[in-house]
Design a binder for these strands. Sequence first.
DNA 1: TGCCAGGCCTTCC
DNA 2: GGAAGGCATGGC
Length: 283
Amino acid sequence: MIKLVELEVKCFTLKYTLECGQCFRWDYIEQEDVYIGVIHDRVIKIWQKANMIYVESNNEENLKNVIQEYFDLYKDYFILESKISKIDTNIYESLKHSSGIRILRQPLVEIIISYIISANNNIKRISKSVNLISQRYGDRISFDGKDYFLFPTLEQLKSVTIEDFLSTGVGFRARYIKNTVEKLIDNSQILEKLKDATTEQARQILLEFQGVGTKVADCILLFSIGRSEVFPVDVWVKRIMEKLYFKKNTSMEEILAYAKEHFREDAGIVQQHLFYNVREGNI
DNA sequence: TGCCAGGCCTTCC
DNA sequence: GGAAGGCATGGC
């Protein structure tokens, strides 16, 4: 049974939000101009026309709230964007190409593992691996005559070996994933603790996982638990920060200090606009 | 075809 | 404690 939810939205661009590199499992279906993906335990088909979004799912229960939570629709991005557009002209210009990006609130376990996979990797291959892990170990859901797969639970990942992970194309990160799954199962409190902790406390907890350094930790903090003040710096963000603000090769410490001072509590969303636009060749 | 990728770990000084 | 090298492997 397919149910539909309609929502009026402000300052939300579905395309930018799903294609800006923060998520790895949404497919664009060109013929229908829709996106299909999985949020937690349900399949979601979503599309946008002007300021309306339309949602279908295999599971109607609480669907509207799930969508609002996932796409951060409770937050007023109109106010947020007008605020950051005043920081400097780089951000003002950048926003012209990417207004409506929302920072998603994605499932924590999926994001921890996805971003461990992201290290020294490319987005296509990250997607491929995360999808393979879901297909092999997650629950199958039929929707619209097709099969979709949930990201596996920790219980489902428990018996997956390093060799199994290797065969999903994650390379040297296989042992980090295995180790992280074990750690999460052994410390069942840790996920709740992460959500309740201060950002700095949460970062320290994440840094204890193998395969999680400062950049991956900040991605988890930003793309899953809404810590909007963090500023993940990968090779793309480093390059564009050097180009726009420093005009020379610059250390990570200096870039982070600059972001903290100038972008402050909104560094995360600024970072995502820069990341999207530098990759699109807009800036 | 060789370089690059949403970096991190280990080793060595 | 900081720098350098190694790492799996597909994408382009």
